[in-house]
Simulated scan of single mutants.
Amino acid sequence: MTVELLKADILSGTQHGFFTRKGGESSGIFEGLNCGVGSSDASDIVLANRSRVAGEMAVVEDALVGVHQYHSAEVVTVDAPSTERPKADAMVTRTAGVALGILTADCQPVLFADKEAGVIGAAHAGWKGALDGVLANTVSAMEDLGAKRANITAAIGPCISQRAYEVGPEFYDDFTAKDPEFSRFFANGTDDRMQFDLPGFGLHMLREAGVEHAEWIGHCTYHDEARFYSYRRTTHRSEPDYGRLISVIRL
């Protein structure tokens, strides 16, 4: 089966793709294109999947770079192919031939481009990273490489949708303590539970960072099992592990 990658209209003219789980070599609970080097899937299979992604992006395997993601607001600048994975949750580059790959399984994969400046970025933005400023920090790091905020476009890929993202009152309190206006990203759920709009919040934070041209391409990772891995779905089923989707952008 061939791999499937989704595109964002807003990033047209830039090589990118939000890869689904289709077309990989993993099996069992990881069935498909699991690119998570931190998963318990067989490492040779994960590397084979990542090699397939690199091929789709027309780069050598070492040029598909990543980071050791830990739900932070840290951003690193990449200037050459590397197999190292520094601790961070976003990357930026202006180096041709380098592909930035972000892993997700419900969190937001966000791809950025300033086509005029030749600067790109990629961020892993779960609720914590988004709240702590990973998206704004990515924009700032792109500026350091010569990008202009007014020229940056950004696309949020497949992630968990509001109807699938039930949270407790303490989660709501964390957001509204930072800004009472953040209450608008929550809808009432059952009893004291609420439904959080992660992509809506991501778009808000992008616009607050000066990115006027941003969109969510849609697709809920939780509700479309045939195409996407989901940490929350795995948790609800008490499964031992889950696959990771990869989203990639390159110059």
Rank of each mutant, 00 (worst) to 15 (best):
R237E: 15
H236A: 09
F196K: 02
H71C: 12
D9C: 02
M142F: 10
F171Y: 10
S26H: 12
Y222R: 01
P158F: 01
I102D: 00
V67T: 14
N151A: 13
K115V: 03
T221E: 01
A150K: 12
F171R: 08
D41K: 10
S82K: 00
D9W: 08
F171E: 10
R237T: 10
I246R: 03
P199H: 05
D9Q: 13
Q69T: 15
G23C: 08
A147I: 04
A117E: 06
Y229L: 14
Y242A: 06
H16C: 07
T234Q: 07
S82F: 01
G38I: 11
T176K: 10
N34P: 11
Y231Q: 15
L47S: 11
A136Y: 07
Q162S: 04
A154L: 07
D9Y: 08
E170D: 13
I156N: 02
L5G: 06
A125N: 00
S230R: 06
S230A: 07
G38V: 07
G126Y: 02
E74G: 08
G218I: 09
H236M: 11
C159Y: 00
H68N: 15
G28L: 04
E225Y: 11
P86Q: 08
I160M: 05
V53N: 05
R237K: 15
L6P: 07
E4F: 09
A187L: 14
T176D: 05
H204R: 10
D41F: 06
H213Y: 10
S12G: 01
G168R: 10
H16Q: 02
E84N: 13
V65W: 06
F112V: 10
R250N: 03
E25S: 15
T95M: 09
E208R: 13
T2V: 14
V98S: 01
G36S: 08
S51I: 00
Y231F: 15
L203S: 03
D241V: 02
A209W: 04
D44I: 11
G101A: 14
P158Q: 00
I249Y: 00
I152V: 12
E116I: 12
E143V: 09
G17C: 01
R50D: 04
I10S: 06
K22P: 04
L251D: 06
T20E: 05
P169A: 03
P86N: 09
P169N: 05
I217D: 06
Q195I: 07
E208V: 09
D197F: 04
E31W: 08
C107S: 14
S40T: 13
R244V: 10
R237L: 15
L145N: 03
C159G: 05
C220I: 02
N188E: 15
A42F: 09
F182H: 13
T190G: 07
S82M: 04
G66E: 09
Q162R: 10
V119F: 00
T221V: 03
A113L: 04
E166D: 12
G118I: 03
R149Q: 11
E225Q: 15
N49M: 12
